[in-house]
Nucleic acid binder design. Sequence first.
DNA 1: TACAAAAAAGATATTTTTGTCTGCTATTTA
DNA 2: TAAATAGCAGACAAAAATATCTTTTTTGTA
Lengths: 161, 161
Amino acid sequence: MSAIYFPFKSYFAPLHCYPMYSKSCEYAIRSVIIISQNSSNSLKTNVKEISQQAGVPEPYIAKVLQTLSKQNLIQSSKGPGGGFYIDESSKNLKLIEIVTAIDGDGLFTACGLGLKECSEKNPCPLHESFKSVRTDIKKMLEKTSIHELANKLEDKLFTSR
Amino acid sequence: MSAIYFPFKSYFAPLHCYPMYSKSCEYAIRSVIIISQNSSNSLKTNVKEISQQAGVPEPYIAKVLQTLSKQNLIQSSKGPGGGFYIDESSKNLKLIEIVTAIDGDGLFTACGLGLKECSEKNPCPLHESFKSVRTDIKKMLEKTSIHELANKLEDKLFTSR
DNA sequence: TACAAAAAAGATATTTTTGTCTGCTATTTA
DNA sequence: TAAATAGCAGACAAAAATATCTTTTTTGTA
């Protein structure tokens, strides 16, 4: 069984750009994909492995994983042979749960002009234009399962060799 | 003629959330809408007015406006009676130009997992899911004109009184 | 020409995000 | 029950984003 390895650090986008979500969230997604894949083989993954395979700083991702663990999106066990895993109850984990846990729901609820009072009843000029886009993002995140992403990545690794 | 006033600072979203773009960009959009409206009445708008009307910190927005001005998306004139304005050549200014100038194109190009090597030929597992969403955002930003936003806001102000 | 208004430029300060380090606690195994 | 493993918690450090301040340059006007 081959472990999933994301490219090394130098392969990650530097650039001046404002991406769709935060580094913490990006790291979380990568990590959870790895955990999910190992979990489907009944394996627990410790922070060191996650850090290496996801190409993510170890102490930092540890923090992020704690956040997910507290919200019971992923599970953990201490002691030798311990690590993070995804149990039956989280088998159907969706991308939106990870994103919301780490970045909040700003991406699909916040006003395009940053107005707190912007709403259906009292829309800002950007409101309607943004509405469908936001809805689409949310739908996409809601329907994408972590499990499915892990499978896709694994397929890709096998077919590209 | 009534000036456009965005709500005061306390009305802006605080919250823990990762919105679609940066504060700088948000401020830029608000400011440009105000400049556009005044420009259609052949008025120049100085930083102080922009700051007050957009509910944005004055020295900060000054910096942001300099960036836009250097890229010739908006125009400026120094001296008494000077300020920022939008001339004929920028009359058809689109939202995407502002967003790109301030936040770069990460929002509609960056990989969902932060992989630099992610592309059509070598897609990450999130690539396809994100593709249509990204395209939609880009299209929306491309078709939305600043001028039109200014008009919408003005209409709203008049009809809501 | 002198003065005042206003943007441009650059330096500095604050806050948030990202990243690191250290020690503690819980769990498994021998 | 001791030792090793591994997550947990909190403090700390660095970098980036956000915000402010000061000086300079340009321009219009008295």
